[in-house]
Simulated assay, not measured.
Amino acid sequence: MSSDMKEITALRLTLLANGYAPLASIDKLCVLPNWPRSPVDEALITRRWARMRRYTATGIRVENGLAVIDLDVDNVPAMAELAERLKGILPGAFLLCRHGKGAKIALFVRTAEPFKRICSKRWLKPGDTAEGGAHGAEIFGGASARYFGAFGWHTLDRIKYRWAGNSPADTPLDRLPVFTKKQFFAAIDAIECILRRRGWQVVERSVGGENVAHRVHDLVEGMAFECNDGVTRTLSELQEMARLDAVQGLRCSASWLEGPTAKRTDRCLIGHTATGQLTVVENDSGVTHMVKTDIDDIIAEKLRRLAAGKPTALDIINEEWRRRDRARAGKRK
C-alpha cells in the first residue's frame, strides 16, 4: 500500500470511529455498488478500499441523525449575508463548514427527526440566464440515499474540498448541533427572502418545500443529448445505458430542451429510476424529465375531457361494464 493510500485509509477509519459512514469515491462521484445500503466497517475500509487506488476521495453518507445543509449559492456577497442570517436561526451550524467549488458551502449538522429533502426554489442573479447557473439551498435529513464529498478532489478541474477549521476527522457526530425541521424551514425561508430582496429572480418551474419532485414525461425520439464526455447520444442510447446502470457521472447540456444556445454540458444530470427508467434532471429548475409514452397521451386527454365536463373513452367503457353488471343482476332475480 502506498503512503498516500495509508493516509486515506487512516482518515476513513477515523471518520468511522467518529460515528460517520465514509464512502470511497472518485472525486465527488461515488460509484460503489449498492452504496446507499452497504454497511461500512473496518474490514471493508482496510481490506477492500485500501486496494482501490483510483478511489482517493472520501464522501460521507447522510445517516444516523446527520443532516447536511447544501448552500448552492455561488456569489460571495450573497453568501456572506446568508451566513450571517443563518447563524441566528441555526446556532452552531457552522461548526463543520465544508467549502467546495466557488463560494458554495455545506454545513454538517444533526436533525431531530429524519426527513428526505427540504429545498428552496432555484434563483438567478439579475442579468443571468439558466445557462449561467442557478442558485439555491437544499437540506438532506437522512431518510433517503444521499452522500456528500468530504475529503480529496471535488472535480476533475482539480479543486479540493476544504474545511473551515473543524472537520469530521476531528469532530464526532454526537458533538454536532441538533435542529428541528421547523428550524430548517425557517432557514430556507430566510434564504429566499434575502435572494428576493437582492433582486434575484425565481427560475421558471422551480419549486421549494419538502420532498418536492416535479416530473414531466417529454423525452421523445429525435432528441440529441450532448454529454460531458464529448459524445452526443440519442434517446435510445441513453435509455439502454440507464437500463444497464451505466450513466454514473454522465451529464448533458440542455440543448435538447432549449436549442443550440444551451452549451453547458454539466447542466443536466442523467440517471435512472429504481426500475431502470431514464431520467434527465435539469438542475436549474429541478425538473426531472422522463420518456414520453402512449399512456401519457391517454391520461392527458382524459384530464382535458374531464376538465371540459365531457365523458372520456374510459368513462364510456366503465359505464358499459356497469350496465352489463346491472343486466346480469336483474336476470338472476
Rank of each mutant, 00 (worst) to 15 (best):
G142S: 00
E63M: 03
F151E: 06
I89T: 09
F140K: 12
R122E: 12
W49M: 01
R54M: 03
G59L: 03
R48Y: 04
E131A: 04
E42Y: 08
I118G: 15
G142T: 00
F108N: 02
K125C: 09
F148H: 10
E42P: 11
L95F: 04
M52A: 13
V109G: 09
P114F: 00
I105D: 12
N64D: 14
I89R: 04
P114K: 02
A145T: 11
G92V: 01
H135T: 08
S120N: 06
A164F: 10
K121Q: 10
R98A: 11
L71G: 14
V73H: 04
T46H: 02
R37W: 11
H99K: 10
W49Q: 02
H135V: 06
N64E: 13
V62F: 13
R158K: 14
W153S: 08
A112I: 01
R48G: 09
W49I: 04
W49T: 02
A50H: 11
G88T: 02
A130C: 15
A57V: 00
L86Q: 06
A93Y: 08
E84D: 14
H135P: 02
V31F: 15
I69Q: 12
V76H: 08
K101Y: 06
A93N: 11
C119R: 15
W123H: 04
G100D: 04
S120A: 03
L95R: 10
T46N: 01
I118W: 15
P114L: 01
T56A: 15
R54D: 13
W35I: 03
S144M: 13
F151Y: 07
G165R: 03
S144G: 15
M79K: 07
G133I: 07
A83G: 06
F115Y: 09
A80C: 13
G141F: 03
V31N: 15
V76W: 06
V109C: 10
L66Q: 02
G141I: 05
L66N: 03
R47Y: 09
R98D: 01
H154I: 04
G152F: 12
A93I: 10
A57G: 01
V109Y: 01
E138N: 12
E113K: 14
G92W: 00
A93L: 10
N64H: 10
W163L: 03
L90R: 04
G102A: 00
A143W: 08
I60K: 05
G133M: 05
I159V: 14
A145M: 05
F148L: 07
N34T: 12
F140E: 05
A93S: 14
H99M: 05
A67N: 00
A67M: 02
P77F: 09
K160G: 01
G136L: 07
Y161E: 08
F94R: 05
I159C: 13
L124Q: 06
R85L: 13
F140G: 07
R158S: 13
I45M: 11
R47P: 10
I105Y: 06
D72P: 15
F140Q: 08
A93D: 09
L86F: 00
A43C: 12
A78K: 01
N75F: 14
